[in-house]
Design a binder for these strands. Structure first.
Lengths: 331, 331
DNA sequence: TTGTAAGCGTTATCAG
DNA sequence: CTGATAACGCTTACAA
């Protein structure tokens, strides 16, 4: 079917070894043969069979990227960052979105291991990844991004400073006099969420306000999910005067909910979101957001590179967040 | 290094052929041996070497997806659709974003061919893809998505009805009495853009309004790109009373530009965008958009499946668009 | 029902 | 500087 190195060798009157050497520049070959080989390669439009190369080299030059959702701007920026860095460094990217289904995730990890990739970047669906043990034993280089499983400290990870994110949002709202701050989240059992809540809690406690679990509301990480979550939260806890929403789609949903309830933002209810999306500044009102790190994807790939070179590598990196203050918080 | 079928065979006291057969269920094996083999596989945490399998089978179960940009919601939805369908059908996805650089695109196509993928879905950077000829000769299954090169009618493609999109937007604005409609675009030499402009032109002509090229403005496909483009367009052509922006990021930029120029929307300038982003309904004003097809990604994958089964397959599919009317058009 | 062995297209060792 | 040739780990006739 395809044309192989053997064909090139025959046509150019040399051995396959020689062909391989000129292709990979792995040994010096006489100018004449080199010329002939290159010429034949061009004429026959030959390109090496990557599957064969991968088998022989025990290396694929491909990295896996497994994320848990996709439409969110934060995830998009992660994919973007990883993809750019991968291309810069000559790696291919095998991309999987698990849609928050652990079953898909396990499947993806299983497929990507066993020589499909040289390593992988994982944003897991939960923080209890018992199945991962097997793959670590196989020395599969993995790094966590955004979320992680604390049971595997030996896996390098890059995260946003989620604690700070929660703290900053709550601190800022407290500064505006809000004491009943609703918190709208999508995925509870995940380190990023847990840490943001911890930060939120810490800021409250600092002001002597005790944490009230009924101010939390779980919804789907979509616009409608945010909308519904805010509606039911506000119905249940009408004393709420501010909202912290943990994903940009939910933030948009929150704004819609307030509109539908004829509540003004920020006068009646203030909003701070996590994740800065492009439209935030052009919304009504312009949305104050906690801005996640934009370099998280690239950083993850760099960690992976280290992990692939040295399986003992085990660094944890936490990237700072910042508050982008606009109008929805009442400033 | 890794553990192979040979190890399983030895440990279970059978031949590699038998192991292969139980793994792939490709022949009946006695219950007893089957049990033993499965047990050993479990104990040693064996998983087959995919590179070897790919080489032997001349098939990778992997599809390539090459898009030209990423942060745009339309592209995101394409990636999402292709990814979901790929997973449903048991395919992996090799993902590349070319950032509108033809050089990256050529490189990506070259890498993805030569047995890295069984086929690929391509949203090209231009409509002149001479380099593609080689790969077609090699029988690499390709399908176009969103954009295409008309010189290759034998490549199946799925596109939005971009002509209709341009027509609908212009027709609607004309209905509101606008005759000077600015058109803000990012990538001129590409079928989607060209067809949208053609539709816009057709609607004008129907009303007896002649096409004025100076009403077009090119900018970067970002928020700032849209912002700058609108500012310079409005400065140059102050008689403009409506805008049609061809990407959601640019639409957001347009809204920002009007704010900065203290122009009211829709009273002073109306806006219709292409590509419906999640925040559109929560902006000020809520943005009227041409809604691109949401199934384009899945459809592309299905076309690819057909093309892989039968290289003669050459269908072109055009998916309808629809106008989502909100406030920015003056309704 | 099971095993032997050829071969997929490379790379790299080892002689010449 | 060049060429045979043995792997890499799997699938699949073909034989037993």
């Amino acid at each position: 079917m395809g044309i192989t190195m053997k064909d090139i060798a025959r046509e150019a009157g040399v051995s396959v070894a020689t062909v391989s050497h000129v292709i990979n520049k792995t040994k010096h070959v006489s100018a004449e043969k080199q010329r002939r080989i290159l010429e034949v390669i061009g004429k026959l439009q030959y390109s090496p069979n990557i599957a064969a190369k991968n088998l022989k080299m025990q290396k694929t030059n491909t990295a896996g990227l497994v994320v848990s959702s996709f439409l969110d701007s934060y995830v998009t920026s992660i994919v973007n960052g990883v993809g750019n860095r991968a291309r810069e460094l000559g790696y291919n990217l095998l991309f999987v979105n698990t849609n928050e289904q652990q079953q898909y995730e396990e499947e993806a990890v299983r497929v990507l291991s066993s020589n499909a990739v040289d390593g992988m970047i994982l944003s897991p669906t939960t923080s209890n990844l018992r199945y991962l043990g097997n793959f670590l034993e196989k020395q599969l280089p993995i790094v966590f991004i955004n979320r992680y499983d604390p049971h595997f400290p030996e896996i390098p990870r890059v995260t946003a400073d989620d604690f700070q994110a929660g703290y900053d949002a709550a601190f800022h709202l407290l500064g505006h006099g809000h004491t009943k701050i609703g918190l709208v989240l999508a995925v509870p059992n995940v380190t990023s969420t847990v840490n943001r809540i911890a930060g939120y809690k810490a800021a409250l406690l600092e002001k002597g306000i005790s944490f009230d679990e009924s101010l939390l509301e779980i919804g789907y990480a979509t616009v409608d999910g945010g909308l519904n979550a805010v509606k039911s939260l506000l119905k249940r806890e009408p004393q709420i005067t501010a909202l912290f929403t943990l994903s940009d789609l939910m933030t948009i949903g929150a704004v819609k909910a307030l509109n539908q309830l004829s509540l003004r933002c920020p006068e009646d209810i203030a909003i701070i979101g996590f994740g800065d999306f492009e439209a935030a500044a052009a919304m009504y009102p312009p949305i104050t957001n906690v801005n996640p790190p934009h370099t998280i994807g690239q950083t993850a790939f760099d960690l992976l590179l280290n992990k692939m070179q040295n399986f003992k590598y085990t660094k944890h990196i936490q990237l700072p967040v910042s508050l982008i203050i606009r109008k929805s918080c009442g400033c």
